[in-house]
Design a protein around this nucleic acid. Structure first.
Lengths: 345, 345
DNA sequence: CTGAAAGCGCTTACAG
DNA sequence: CTGAAAGCGCTTACAG
């Protein structure tokens, strides 16, 4: 055997390319970095040499030299269960990966569930291993955003970070227009002739919790419907909390003919609890969800819901982050949502 | 302003540590790499110096020097839709990220949906930017495994790679025992007194497709039940294909009192189609799924299914990969599944 | 436009 | 056990 299949040959370096092309290493490097100050003839022979040698840049060497890493962290600060349940993460992650790959920058996935993981990841990030971070978290007072910002790490969060006041600059974020989405849904429920509209909110220390509730209140007020606080139940985005909310409503003996539920997953729980109680959707109670996740198609009937522009959220996150990395100031981007009508309302 | 919040200070190097500790850089490096040939006194002062300076190793420099990158790729070669729908990916990805983080090695997420992405990723990987790859794909004759193997890149696949014959060494993989899981489920259905058991398979160019079908046939045969090919419908793991399967069975006028469905997602489709047809689960037809995904809890009644040991699959993948990176031969690991009883059967 | 050279921060034989 | 030194593969002023 002259060549073991498991043996990785030492890859060609810029030096090999230079030799083959008959130029200096500096010239090859200049070609690689934009081609400025390289004569057409030199460019030619370098291109040929690169093809011939199969050269590809060694990014470790480049990073050591430039101080940039050409990579960003996708940092998830979720307790484990959330990550499993929330389908938004999938879409977000996928879209960010794509957007970055197109720009030839690599995505490091980091998950900070435990305090230990948190510490490790923070250390990694702040010690300059990545050029910036895409932060995804719906944690309440998650301090990680503030820490990163204060460490001067380029950063953009998915969704409005809460409870970050205090020192230093703002932190960039891109988010869907939660409040407006909620308004659309509640108006839709009203247009169906429903008047006793209950709501299951997200946790009230998350933007999705407070903003969607705000939209709900707003529309009812503008419709001249008196607020009935018994109609408002706080959930935590989980299926189970949707079921619990229905149980609560039923136990309290409150009447309602519609529900605006702040996540599809909770809506799923709501619908199965309703079915168990012998209530029919949409006949007895119309249901509106939020997210347009796969769960929205799994219910019977399918769920009327609000769609996040997750693809655009992702691409905007990447755009804003890269801008920041190259020196621009933080920015915030709010994207419109869309009502998706299906069978439940 | 003496210090702008957005300014990242230049991090301390091994040189700073050496100076503070009063030793040479070589000694610091030796301490960092296992502490061999370092006197207790030197160790002491280096530790103090590291703490004082806040030193953390520059991995680019280290990689350049050692040739290792201390990172691995998590490569997904799925068409986009699959990734969104399949909850197994989530769990797998999460668990791999954790297992790697514990060993201080970083996970690069790469998704090869299009041929273009495939090429880019392959180039990245084969040019030595990562030490190895965790390959996740249920593609039929996905050539990526063979290419990686032939390029000598340490590699472990999730699930049995199909259609990789030919040259070179074997490729490592770790998989659940699909056939045995299928056997358990069909036996369970039999134990319920069902005799006309239909099945919806996965694509027959995937291990989950062929192995689960094989288990089904095996148990029926050993129970002395004649095979009725009209009872076997091929699906593609999607919810829609579950619905289609039921439509097909009903249109064909085949009788059945149970179904073994090769994925929970398909089972979801099956159940909604059954409901639409006025058939009751489990009374009229008992349903057994496969995966124990979140979808299994979303159905009404909840789904009896087969659980993959995803956590163990992930940790085994990481273990086998790291072993291979440090020179060991490829290995294959098969892990047992578990029957989870719920309402549908 | 181009080459020679220094430097990025680490690791690792090599002497001692 | 320890230090001096070479080398990993690139980039980037600096001269020319």
């Amino acid at each position: 055997m002259t060549t073991s299949p498991n043996e990785r040959r030492k890859p060609p370096t810029i030096h090999d390319v230079a030799r083959v092309a008959g130029v200096s290493r500096g010239t090859v490097s200049r070609y690689l970095n934009g081609g400025h100050y390289v004569s057409p003839a030199a460019r030619q022979s370098v291109e040929v040499a690169i093809k011939k040698t199969g050269y590809v840049v060694n990014r470790h060497a480049r990073s050591l030299s430039t101080g940039r890493s050409d990579s960003v962290a996708f940092l998830l600060t979720e307790p484990q269960e959330k990550f499993f349940e929330d389908p938004n993460f999938n879409v977000l992650l996928r879209a960010c990966t794509k957007a970055l790959a197109e720009r030839d920058i690599t995505l490091l996935l980091m998950i900070a569930g435990t305090p230990d993981e948190r510490r490790r990841n923070l250390r990694y990030i702040t010690s300059g291993h990545v050029d910036g971070v895409l932060l995804v978290s719906s944690h309440s007072g998650d301090p990680v955003a503030a820490e990163l910002r204060d460490a001067g790490v380029p950063l953009v969060a998915c969704g409005r970070p809460m409870g970050i006041g205090a020192p230093g600059a703002k932190v960039s974020y891109v988010a869907a227009d939660d409040r407006d989405g909620a308004r659309d849904m509640v108006r839709h429920l009203l247009s169906l002739g429903r008047r006793r509209i209950a709501t299951v909110t997200g946790p009230l220390d998350t933007p999705g919790g407070v903003d969607r509730l705000a939209g709900y209140r707003e529309v009812l007020a503008e419709a001249g419907i008196e607020a009935d606080e018994r109609l408002i139940v706080t959930g935590d985005y989980s299926r189970a909390s949707g079921e619990a909310a229905v149980a609560r409503l039923l136990a309290d003996g409150v009447e309602f003919d519609a529900m605006f539920v702040a996540s599809d997953l909770m809506a799923q729980g709501v619908m199965s609890a309703l079915a168990q109680a012998g209530l029919r959707v949409p006949d007895d109670v119309a249901i509106g969800g939020f997210d347009d996740s796969p769960a929205a198609l799994a219910t019977q009937p399918a769920l009327t819901t609000i769609r996040h522009p997750l693809d655009r959220i992702s691409s905007e996150m990447v755009r804003v982050l890269l801008a920041q990395i190259s020196g621009e100031a933080p920015a915030t981007v709010i994207l419109p949502t869309e009502l998706v009508r299906r069978g439940s309302a």
